[in-house]
Design a protein around this nucleic acid. Structure first.
Lengths: 261, 261
DNA sequence: TACCCCTGTTCAGTTATTCTGAACAATCCT
DNA sequence: AGGATTGTTCAGAATAACTGAACAGGGGTA
């Protein structure tokens, strides 16, 4: 591992929505490195376009980040395939639809659609990273990962309690994941945000790997009324996307048999 | 300048919409470096999340890029201010609206709206980088930069001919920029794409700096009919955005006088 | 207006890293 | 099953990064 690149990564990670602008001295004190080291890191990152230094010598994330982000969006196969199905769902139910993936143990929103105002949609909240233990998509994605790995992640990240329903016990979480995997969908019953429920299902690719998860978010009072219908719609949507990605169920079950031999 | 970071930048620049996936050996031969060097670069970039290595050990841009791109979008002041005005323009004229900035001598689309289908809009073509000599936004942005610097950029990048109207002569381009700066707007009369015309104007910030340019793109036959109206609409939109950013014209003229002393 | 303090930037010697090329392991294709 | 890819590892040789003090440029204040 190249030490210099790792340091550069630490520098980049400082830039977030709350602190989009950093000076050399600030970075130096924050990372506890000499001013000159911070300077060469920032200057080099600016030279390759990942940062830019505008007025006052302060640094911001560069426009190339926009470019790279867009490439991610445009070249992710399941994202392209999901789009049409997501729009259909959003149009029919007028609820918020999320498409999420697992990245280094956290849930990342790869796409988002709102039923109401169509315009702002695809941009807001995209790329947001959050802990997976309290969301339907997180449960779905983790349920298809080996438990020891999941356990390690949970211990490393912790399982913060956001509402009374948040699962904070590791063993309880394992049971939940087993059930999710078994039944092929997951609920989030006000576990992350009060009064907000979600239902999510897995998206498989041609290799029968779970590559993403799609969810619909619904206010609790409305969710209770038609839980089954929402669930069915999400599951059918995921099946349709999976099929478009080349997933075939019978091959999957065949491979499971082969693996168990 | 940190050599390692520069190398990392070269690696990242390989990833584009046409080649979103690279292996170690491919990178090594492409950049003419030993396989092991390519490996440590890719592995390190993957560790900090800028890349990810999925199936087959091949590497792709990481999900963190989406995150960073989104931060750029959400924390760019003029972009936030422009949004409402752009939507208004798009709704009224039903034509494509672009918001562009200058980054290292090239034009970058910071936002894009289409009048017709509202949904796909904000995502398509965002972050795209193109040469500035054949677009209205490019002319506007360059017209507010010192000519020697612009000349250098033009000589480095070249001025490729896309249509019969493309300006390919440097001296001719200088005249054009002088006029654009003087009149406060720029046309693109089928200079980049046949049958496509644009009109663009500058967006000033509180410091009287040109930070971006907004343009409207219209099919040539329609553009000829109402050139003046389109021009007026774009200029008024830019003035409104500039004012929201704290730009005040009288301060600008005051500073010009002070600078000329 | 002049001062002071805090910026970002540069530089050269010391230190620690990266770079390299060959050997290994795993995978795909024939 | 074989051959030729691929990605990965390792230890010595070469080179880069790290440091801390000195420099320069602004912004604010007295």
């Amino acid at each position: 591992m190249l030490n210099t690149v790792l340091k550069a990564g630490q520098v980049l990670d400082l830039f977030d929505k709350q602190n989009p602008e950093w000076g050399v001295s600030e970075v130096a004190t924050e990372l506890d490195i000499p001013k000159s080291s911070a300077h060469s890191l920032l200057a080099s990152l600016a030279q390759i376009g990942l940062l830019r230094h505008g007025e006052g010598g302060r640094y911001r994330l560069g426009w190339k980040m926009l470019n790279f982000g867009q490439i991610v969006i445009d070249t992710t196969e399941f994202r392209v395939e999901s789009r049409a199905v997501m729009e259909q769902l959003a149009a029919q139910y007028r609820e918020t639809i999320h498409l999420a993936v697992l990245d280094d143990g956290v849930v990342v929103y790869a796409d988002k659609l709102q039923g109401q105002q169509a315009v702002q949609v695809a941009v807001t909240g995209l790329g947001v990273r959050l802990s997976p233990h309290c969301s339907a998509v997180g449960k779905v994605l983790l349920s298809h990962q080996p438990w020891p790995w999941v356990r390690e992640i949970m211990e490393k990240q912790g399982m913060p309690k956001f509402t009374d329903n948040t699962i904070t016990d590791v063993d309880r979480f394992q049971e939940e994941l087993l059930q999710v995997r078994e039944q092929g969908f997951a609920y989030d019953l006000e576990e992350a945000v009060p009064d907000l429920c979600c239902v999510a299902a897995p998206i498989y690719d041609y290799d029968s790997e779970v590559v993403a998860s799609l969810s619909m978010s619904i206010p609790a009072y409305r969710f209770e009324r038609a839980k089954k219908e929402y669930r069915g719609a999400v599951i059918r949507a995921c099946q349709k996307i999976s099929r478009n990605l080349g997933y075939m169920e019978f091959i999957s079950s065949y491979r499971k048999k082969a693996a168990n031999k």
